[in-house]
Design a protein around this nucleic acid. Structure first.
Lengths: 198, 198
DNA sequence: TACTGATTTAGTACCTGGTGATAAAGTTTT
DNA sequence: AAAACTTTATCACCAGGTACTAAATCAGTA
């Protein structure tokens, strides 16, 4: 009574999984048409496969995107600043997540590592509007998914009012340095006309 | 019959808009508790404000993220590459959208401008895995919301197998140069052990 | 052949988070 | 007070399910 050559079910499970993966917005009813089985079978199959219902799937996707939206573009500072002495130094922590890596290699895309350092360099300058004017950076070793980047910024020089500041940033994973950068930050004491990209 | 000093409704509309913006996953029922009005009022308000129901909101977010998930693999290159001569030069276009700017100033965050240039510098190198090792960059003027950035990359030198390439990138808005960068890209002919962040 | 067990189908009740229409009450404004 | 606007209250209905029970179908034996 167990089964040899009782594939139709497993085959259907495969197809079902694939169909939903291809189009997560498909309803059970539509699936019955594609697979030519009753809606109850579809539902049993979903249960067995642990695939949630349409609305749950959409909710999950929405939540996932909502989280990554607020961790990416909404955050004007990338990484959590855990220490800040204005015009002197600062430390921030940023953990590399799925959203930050190349899918094929799980290596963080450079601009995220750059963004953490850049954000910190800007944050450490005590000014209403501070913008990056230039930077000189080194990626010392690739950063992988899950690694926690600790960036330390040191203000090296501040010249006068409405002028440039030099900030040096080192990023570590553990005690390994993975990134180093020298930033020139424009500070606009008073006026907000200035140069830079951030 | 029109109204002067009939704020409570508009005030509520404002609050409603804000509440939903803060937490798009809120139900009408929860909103009645926050705003102390009946659920019908909430629904009339949503109608007037053109705010779709919870499920519709989740669906939109899910669809948006689904689209951007499929444009994110393309997102490995930021900007549209419109011309590419491998190991020689390339051009990409990237329009600054809401997601790319500081809300307070509508100035593009530096890392997006950097990311376009960096992506192009990597793409122009004809190698399976190419990673940024270092960069020397200048933000010449701020880039604003809606501006179209045209990045041009030129390969300046390629040294041997499994070695460094130097790529220079200029980014323009119209005929104004807004960014300039010198990138050192590692190319790993064969092996994929190499350095860099991108 | 009849029994066993898995698989599939059917049907009902119920749930959430709404829409839409209609009516009634409350509040201003005129 | 009458007209106009705003809010609340009902009621019927919908999609896309869950949860549960029951029956039908099919296969492979014992």
């Amino acid at each position: 009574m167990p089964n040899i050559e009782r594939l139709p079910k497993r085959q259907r499970h495969q197809q079902l999984t694939q169909l939903i993966e291809e189009n997560p917005f498909i309803t059970d009813r539509e699936l019955t048409r594609m697979l030519k089985v009753s809606i109850q079978t579809i539902r049993l199959d979903r249960m067995e496969l642990g695939i949630p219902e349409l609305r749950e799937r959409m909710k999950l996707m929405a939540e996932r995107s909502y989280d990554s939206v607020r961790s990416l573009p909404l955050h004007e500072v990338i990484g959590d600043i855990i220490d800040l002495e204005l015009d002197r130094s600062g430390i921030s922590v940023f953990e590399i997540g799925q959203d930050h890596v190349f899918s094929r290699s799980s290596i963080a895309r450079g601009h995220h590592v750059f963004a953490q350092a850049n954000s910190l360099a800007v944050a450490v300058i005590d000014d209403f509007i501070a913008l990056t004017a230039a930077a000189d950076i080194r990626f010392i070793r690739p950063v992988k998914l899950g690694e926690k980047c600790i960036a330390k910024a040191y203000v090296r020089s501040i010249s006068g009012e409405r002028s440039k500041a030099k900030v040096e940033v080192f990023t570590y994973v553990g005690d390994e340095m993975v990134f180093q950068g020298n930033f020139v930050i424009y500070r606009s004491a008073g006026k907000q006309e200035s140069e830079g990209g951030e």
